[in-house]
């Protein structure tokens, strides 16, 4: 029972990180990002290949394989998601219509998923990565490890929560809300919708990268099959309001 609770709470914590990121994009800015899961996947994949040995277990193929510590993996995962978000955001946000953005991000998510599944050299194709090393797995054993991982995730949630709250209350957050409510009025007050949306998009995506890194390390496996649009919708449903507290409770 305690083991089950620990597992469930860990998932809740990881899901919370993901929800906080999506909440920045959708709740605060009104960007319906159907490629959100792509940034989570990027985080999971990149942190995995940075911490893993090259080609382990035998027969799998992927890039890098640097054997770096967990922290470096997380940083790499978040960075990769952030860089990808700059590119995707710059492309998808050029047209400022909301429904256009949803359709474009859907196409990007589906397309990249198929690409990840087809090119085996990248992240072992559709079979995905398995046996991703976990942080400090030799130090803690059994239930201690579960508690450790849960605390690690809760720490990440708290960091993300503080950042998100701070952003929400900052002038930047106010500008985003103004943009969400009335884009023309916000532009009339000298705000640039494109750069504001792009910044919110990138910050949200880096949280997705963090959540993905944690998820990959916790489950110790990741494959393109777990990366459909259905998963994004799930996160969406979980975090469908601006209030951050409810975003946490609902998932």
């Amino acid at each position: 029972m305690i083991d089950f609770m620990l597992t469930a709470l860990t998932y809740v914590a990881i899901q919370s990180v993901l929800s906080l990121g999506l909440n920045l994009q959708w709740g605060l800015t009104g960007l319906l990002n159907l490629a959100y899961i792509l940034f989570m996947a990027t985080g999971a994949y990149f942190s995995a290949v940075v911490v893993s040995d090259p080609a382990s277990p035998p027969g799998t193929e992927y890039i890098l394989g640097l054997r770096e510590p967990f922290l470096a993996g997380v940083v790499a995962g978040v960075l990769a998601a952030t860089v990808l978000a700059v590119v995707v955001g710059a492309v998808a946000l050029r047209n400022l219509r909301a429904d256009y953005f949803a359709i474009v991000t859907l196409v990007i998510a589906e397309g990249t998923q198929q690409i990840a599944g087809q090119f085996r050299g990248l992240f072992n194709g559709s079979a995905g990565l398995v046996a991703i090393p976990q942080p400090l797995e030799t130090v803690f054993q059994g239930r201690d490890y579960a508690v450790f991982f849960l605390l690690l995730c809760i720490g990440c949630v708290m960091v993300c929560f503080v950042v998100a709250e701070w952003l929400r209350k900052s002038p930047f957050g106010r500008a985003l809300r103004a943009l969400r409510e009335d884009e023309e009025a916000a532009s009339a007050f000298g705000r640039n919708p494109y750069t504001l949306k792009l910044r919110a998009f990138v910050i949200g995506a880096s949280m997705a990268g963090l959540g993905g890194s944690l998820l990959g390390a916790y489950v110790t496996a990741f494959a393109p099959a777990g990366w459909g649009v259905a998963e994004t919708l799930l996160v969406l449903v979980c975090s469908s309001s601006e209030a951050l507290a409810t975003a946490l409770v609902r998932c």
Partner: peptide, 29 residues
């Protein structure tokens, strides 16, 4: 798929509203 996404990206960068670009004023839904 790579090719399809590349074309898509290119078009969106050059012409954000697609090849037949016409300014359409319409309230954001």
């Amino acid at each position: 798929q790579v090719a399809a996404l590349a074309v898509l990206t290119l078009v969106l960068l050059v012409r954000p509203s697609g090849i037949l670009q016409v300014q359409r004023t319409r309230a954001e839904a």
